[in-house]
């Protein structure tokens, strides 16, 4: 019965948001690929959102849900811009590896 009590509290939500955050950071660091990096950032973002909503539910304050609602819209826009950058980087360099990403700007082509 003690286990059921733990499961019905906010404990599983913390476990899941931790899982999402560490999954995102893990694949960002270990797979050195630009496409994976963008996807990983989204996963981290979702883990943090879950943390906000959990806190707002269990503390009885709607502000957490409000923050999630506002940041979701910004995240969609920034995701699109990130994808544009990756596609154009691939056009220039013919590679997706993060390790060759050393220079910024126009001098890159030399």
């Amino acid at each position: 019965m003690e286990v059921l009590k733990v499961l019905a509290s906010e404990y599983p939500f913390y476990v899941i948001s931790g899982l999402l955050i560490f999954l995102g950071i893990g694949i960002f660091i270990l797979k050195k690929n630009l496409l994976v990096a963008i996807l990983a950032l989204e996963v981290v973002f979702n883990g943090i959102n879950l943390l906000f909503v959990t806190a707002s539910h269990y503390l009885g304050d709607p502000k957490g849900k409000m923050i999630v609602l506002l940041t979701l819209a910004v995240a969609a826009g920034s995701f699109a811009i990130g994808l544009i950058l990756v596609v154009n980087y691939y056009r220039l360099k013919r590679s997706l590896s993060m390790e060759e990403l050393k220079l910024l700007g126009e001098k890159d082509e030399e």
């Binding site: 059921l4 009590k5 499961l7 019905a8 599983p12 476990v15």
Partner: peptide
């Protein structure tokens, strides 16, 4: 409460 616990257990497993 028991339904909630079971559902959350299944969801955590899937995650």
């Amino acid at each position: 409460m028991i339904e909630r616990a079971i559902a959350l257990l299944i969801l955590t497993g899937l995650f």
